[in-house]
Nucleic acid binder design. Structure first.
Lengths: 251, 251
DNA sequence: TCGCGCATCTGGTTCAGACCAGTTTACCAA
DNA sequence: TTGGTAAACTGGTCTGAACCAGATGCGCGA
């Protein structure tokens, strides 16, 4: 148990880690960077690592949590730890829809509609859409995956008055396309807000994440050419699944 | 130690938490939302909470980590846990500089210049700036705080050829203003990229965070009216300190 | 009054063991 | 071959104990 008895001779720049979990983190990270472990590969189980490195399971998990926070690995509940695939690049200004930009990056996108409903506008939504209280709004909840891995949950709200029968369409495809093709609605401006967050409750459940893991929350209000709100969108991304890139003019 | 023996009569929607740390999380969260604990207040120490709730310290810490991930509380190393102040709203398209937009939100911004240097361009920077390998570039590392709390570390790179003597100015003020006033340089376009990340190494040290805590990494390439790169910027934000908001036209 | 130093407090790290609850696998029966 | 079930496996939760190191505060000495 002689913790500090590792008479290390390694220099200060090398992995003479004072904390054991940092050393283990570096060990696994290098195995990933050398290609010894490839995206999608399963790591040895925590108990195997325990025997391999002679550390307590808590210390092993500390290292795994760190790698997870860095986006290097992810977990599937009670199945194991896996090496993360590279993130998807997402440019909110070039919004051609999830399906097309994921495909453009050589990945396989999937959409699953969790639920749909038409609900009277509450005060908040009434305000956002500039519609009377109780006006009908379509609510859509979808789960989107890349290469079979759930990466984001989105909650969409669309004004039912200008999109009658929207919920009868196949919502597992691009909503942008449906709005354009069937209702002649085009988005001209977006108001986007985002924050790093913790994924909890329903979002964590749908993404099959343990509650509390980091994520990225993004809200978008989409306007058409007349300045009318056509869509209000909440997205919850796995933190390791996305890289946001924006090209913009300064005002 | 009868774990599940908490003969709770609370309904399923209430805090009949199956996991103890979730119950504790809710307890502290509600103390914050009711105003019992206000931004800046110090929480009881982990060992005090231990006695108060009769849980192991590890379980207490699990709850604190969750609240931290949610941005509700933060820690000052070996000092204690504190209630987080509200985040700063940051619009990269309305870039008048850190100082002015933080002030506009009624907060007190501070800047501390950690280091400056003029360094020959490496291949990466040479490419970004379209300047020959080895061309002199000013490097500036600054720590920026809101209400006395460090919220971001930035690493700036500026082309030394068009900003001679830049490092002699007081860099604890707005760099945007210095570039404009003294060198006639204005930013016309930004290329911004950002990802949720884990704060590690120097960034964690400067922000007085434990390595591995979540953050937001943001890279910006700024162009002037002629499409010339004038500034390359890396920012590392505390995840709970910032809310990014962007208003943009779709292309 | 000022400043240094030590005792104390606080979070940081690590250990070892235990049981729980989904996942996965292997095997047996139909 | 197929279907189902039980065993084994894996991460999730929790306990309790110990020691480390930086932060803080109090008191003593100059």
């Amino acid at each position: 148990m002689e913790k500090a008895a590792d008479t290390n001779g390694t220099g200060p720049t090398e992995s003479a880690e004072s904390r054991q979990y940092l050393g283990l983190r570096d060990g696994i990270a290098s195995r990933i960077s050398t290609g010894d472990l490839k995206p999608g590969d399963k790591l040895p189980s925590e108990r195997q690592l325990q025997g391999e490195f002679g550390l307590a399971r808590g210390t092993i998990r500390e290292a795994l949590f760190l790698l997870e926070a860095e986006g290097a690995i992810f977990r599937r509940d009670r199945s194991g730890w896996y090496v993360s695939p590279p993130p998807v690049v997402y440019d909110p200004t070039r919004w051609e829809g999830f399906m097309s930009y994921v495909e453009a990056q050589g990945r396989v996108p999937t959409t699953f509609t969790i639920s749909t409903a038409t609900i009277p506008a509450d005060p908040l939504l009434s305000d956002i859409f500039s519609r009377p209280l109780g006006a009908p709004l379509h609510h859509i909840r979808r789960l989107r995956s890349v290469d079979g891995r759930a990466v984001l949950v989105e909650k969409l709200v669309v004004d039912a008055a200008i999109t009658p029968g929207l919920l009868d369409f196949d919502l597992n495809t691009s909503l942008t396309a449906i709005l354009k093709r069937n209702f002649g609605i085009t988005v001209a401006r977006n108001q986007i807000s985002m924050q790093p967050c913790a994924l909890t409750g329903d979002e964590a459940v749908d993404l099959r994440q343990k509650s509390g893991l980091p994520g990225l929350a993004l809200q978008r209000v989409s306007y058409d050419g007349h300045g009318r709100v056509v869509e209000y969108d909440h997205e919850y991304w796995r933190h390791d699944a996305v890289q946001i890139t924006v090209d913009l003019r300064v005002r």
